[in-house]
Each structure stands twice: as C-alpha cells, then as structure tokens.
C-alpha cells in the first residue's frame, strides 16, 4: 500500500536522519544561514572603509582580520554569504521553473512535443556552460534593463539558472515517461481529470524525490558558479560583497595577507560540502533500497 503523504514524509525524515553526514551538513548550513541573517548584529559596517585599520591580521577585535580598505572581513563574509546563498537559491528556483515544465510536457505528451523539447535541451547541454556564463555576464554588464540591473543578484542568478535547468528537464521527463503509464493515471483520466490536474496533482508529486535531490546538488553548483564568475570580476560587483568577489579582491595582495583569500574560501567550502552531504542523505532517504542495504535491514 502506498503510505499517506504524512507517513511518507515521516519515513523519509527518519531515513534522512540516519545519514550522519547529512545531519552534520544540516547543522553547519543552518549555522551559516543564521549567521548570515544576523550579520547586522556585527558592530562593523560591511561597506564603509576605515583606512586606519586596513589589512589587520585576525585578532580579538577583528576575528578574521580586515581588508585593504579596513573593513572587518568576518562582517563582509557574512554579508557576502547573504548574496552568495541568495544567488544560489534564486538560480535553482529559476532552473526549476524552466526545467520542470519542459520535462513534464515532454514526458507527458511524448511524440513531437517531446522531440522538440529534448532537442532544445540537447542544444543547451552541448554548450560549454561556464564560457557561455562568462559571455552572458560580459554582455549583460553593458545593458540597461528595467529589473535586471547590471551584475545585480537577480541578473547573475538568472544567467546561472538559465544555463543549468537541463538536468531537471531530463529527470522530470524520465519520471513522467514511466508514471504516465501507471494504472492510477489512467484511472484519473477515465474519471475526467484534466491533463493539467493529472500532471500537477498526480504525477509530479510522485516524481518529486529526484527533483529535490537534484535541486540540493544544483544549489551547491550554483554557489560555486557565482563564486567563479565573481572571482573573474564578471559577477557581483564591489562594494557589495559576495564570497567570490571577496577572493577576487584578495588576489592583489594575498601572499602577504593570506587571511583575505583563505576565509571566504572556507565559507564556500563548508557550504558546498554541507549541501552535497545533505543531497546524498536525501538521495538515500528517497531511495529506500539503498539505505536498507546499507544498514543491513532487508535480509
């Protein structure tokens, strides 16, 4: 019998909490998010320079030292975390918004719709994505658009999201291809349910597991992409801090003042590791056979 949604999510949560790495990842990522949210409690201003205090090494006054303009590095990392995590979140939301409908329509209707949508997906997959990301960021840097200001959080997220929806499309398509043949789908169709209702209400919830797992992994990927782009100075621009442009700014004197390069990178590293472990835990949680095999439950 298929468990009720509530039981189902409890079962998934139980399996998820058995994954030690995922739990540690959850704790670390929650801490990072909380610290970023409460960054305003810091006594220092993230953007105002005070040249008297420039390039101080880590001390009790400035836990992670100060940068070339005398700004507290910890404060800037926390404010930068807001930017980097927001870019990651919006980018994943955008690629979900593009990828899931494309995959759903292709898988549900099949035939011509499927082959056209999948050709488009293939085209995007055959682009050298990071290079296109650089190109788009370079072009958008010169454009005045109403909502998408130059190098704003929204612009960068859009560009990253628009180049990373393909996995979602493929996964959702595969899920729809198998699920649309199920008896319960034919049953609801016989009862007169509309295509829209069948897709959103009956098929999508059953394919949601893979999407959630992939979204978690994509979050880490998007954060790394933003960091790389900002490191090349094509992403978020100073004085707004992001983890990538903090490292970019550190570049000119990082051998003398290594903390400027080291700490923002640790923030990125901890975030990505945690997110990947959470993704791994979720994958196990949605794939009961694998986890049962692990704990030796099914013998």
């Amino acid at each position: 019998m298929i468990p009720q949604p509530s039981e189902f999510s409890i079962a998934i949560w139980k399996r998820f909490t058995r994954h030690r790495g995922a739990i540690i990842g959850m704790v670390i990522i929650s801490l990072i998010i909380l610290l970023c949210i409460f960054a305003f409690l810091s006594p220092f201003n993230p953007e105002k320079s005070s040249l008297a205090e420039k390039l101080l090494p880590p001390s009790s006054a400035h836990l992670l030292g100060t940068d070339a303009l005398g700004r507290d590095l910890l404060t800037r990392i926390l404010y930068g975390g807001r930017i980097s995590l927001t870019v990651g979140g919006i980018a994943v939301a955008i690629s979900l918004l593009i990828g899931v409908p494309i995959g759903a329509l292709a898988g549900y209707y099949g035939g011509k719709v499927d082959s056209i949508l999948m050709r488009i997906t293939d085209a995007f997959l055959s682009l050298p994505s990071f290079l296109v990301l650089i190109l788009l960021a370079a072009i958008l840097r010169e454009v005045e658009l109403p909502i998408f200001q130059r190098n704003s959080v929204l612009t960068i997220s859009l560009v990253i999201g628009a180049l990373s929806w393909m996995t979602f499309a493929r996964l959702v398509r595969a899920a729809f291809l198998t699920l649309r043949e199920m008896d319960y789908v034919s049953a609801s169709r016989a009862l007169g349910a509309s295509d829209r209702r069948i897709m959103l209400g009956h098929i999508l919830p059953n394919g949601i597991g893979v999407v959630i797992v992939e979204a978690t992994l994509q979050l880490g990927y998007a954060i790394i992409q933003e960091a790389g782009l900002s490191f090349l100075n094509f992403g978020i621009q100073q004085p707004t801090p992001s983890w990538g442009n903090l490292i970019y700014a550190a570049q000119s004197h990082f051998t003398k003042y290594p903390w400027l390069a080291i700490f923002p990178g640790i923030a990125i590293f901890l975030t990505i590791v945690s997110v990947n472990y959470i993704g791994d835990g979720l994958r196990d949680a949605f794939d009961p056979y694998k986890v049962m095999e692990k704990v030796g439950e099914w013998t």
């Binding site: 390069a261 080291i262 990125i268 590293f269 990505i272 990947n276």
Partner: peptide, 13 residues
C-alpha cells in the same frame, strides 16, 4: 566542494 581557484591561491600561498 573546493573551488579550484581558491585551491590555486592557497597552494600559491
């Protein structure tokens, strides 16, 4: 999870 450009900088340090 290690950003490669950051690893490069650390190795240079």
């Amino acid at each position: 999870a290690i950003p490669e450009f950051w690893l490069g900088l650390i190795l240079i340090i």
